[in-house]
């Protein structure tokens, strides 16, 4: 089995007396798509925030390819190869769709400090940004400000930013939330495509059971901030404990 590209060890965060993520140890390997499920408030997004650096852990570590990145700022973790898309749309509202994506491309290419050449003269950057526009079918909206997009298109742009970062580890936080039925399959197809690349590790927070079934190689269940179950989809879904805390409440899926 390949060595883990991402690992959390005893990852814990406390907000006052409340333990939002409680000692989660888990390793994620390239070529594997792990879906993180759990009831609302289980700590899924908080777990993501701890991994990508928006929150600092109270204790425990995050390791990328064996290196401890727990003390790095989010930008350092992004440069280490972690890419994150957000559950609540988190874009650059006044910038054009193309500029939004170019920002992700040029962050990876390391030309963010270049200030004497016009951005448009960096043809390779623009071409790559256009490629991801195409992939997410946003080409027609390229020059609109992000704020002018419909909700579904903003969600797609959020995904496009993550794709354009070309990270080793992709972290999707409910990528299809609030998307119409005709847009969601496009995004899921993009995720399936990433999954086919065996060098990539994918983490996905998702509620919809049909999505989980279609994509998951592995499921981990968080409950009250702790790791409740971890295994192949069929094992986890068959587990009585999981049915009780999670599936049971939502009715048989």
């Amino acid at each position: 089995m390949a060595s883990p590209s991402l690992e959390t060890r005893d990852l814990t965060i406390r907000f006052g007396g409340h333990v939002a993520v409680n000692g989660v140890s888990c390793a994620f390997r390239p070529g594997e798509l792990t879906v993180i499920v759990g009831p609302n408030g289980a700590g899924k997004t908080t777990y993501f925030n701890l991994i990508s650096g928006q929150l600092r852990a109270t204790s425990g570590q995050v390791l990328k390819d064996g290196r401890d990145i727990s003390r790095l700022a989010p930008s350092g973790r992004a440069r280490a190869g972690l890419g994150r898309a957000f559950q609540l749309t988190n874009l650059f509202p006044a910038l054009s769709v193309l500029e939004n994506i170019r920002l992700a491309v040029q962050a990876r290419a390391g030309v963010g400090r270049q200030f004497l050449r016009r951005a448009a003269a960096h043809r390779d950057l623009v071409a790559q940004a256009e490629h991801y526009l195409e992939a997410t079918r946003l080409t027609r909206a390229a020059h609109l400000p992000a704020v002018a997009l419909a909700h579904g298109d903003q969600r797609k742009l959020e995904v496009a930013l993550l794709l354009a970062m070309e990270p080793d580890v992709f972290m999707f936080d409910e990528p299809t939330a609030g998307m119409s039925l005709d847009h969601a399959p496009e995004v899921l197809e993009l995720i399936a495509e990433i999954k086919r690349d065996t060098a990539r590790t994918v983490l996905l927070v998702e509620h919809k059971m049909e999505v989980v079934r279609a994509l998951a190689d592995r499921i981990i269940v968080l409950h009250n901030g702790a790791l409740l179950a971890d295994g192949k989809p069929e094992e986890v879904m068959a587990s009585d404990l999981v049915r009780e805390v999670y599936l049971g409440k939502r009715g048989a899926a």
Binding site: P74, S75, F92, L95, A107, F115, R118, L161
Partner: peptide
């Protein structure tokens, strides 16, 4: 010229959404 360079876009990105710029690696 700075305003239309790659750096200029990063500056606007920081103005628009600092946390997201940080998450992209800036």
């Amino acid at each position: 010229r700075v305003t239309v360079s790659p750096l200029g876009t990063v500056l606007k990105a920081i103005r628009e959404n600092e946390a997201r710029a940080e998450a992209l690696g800036y």
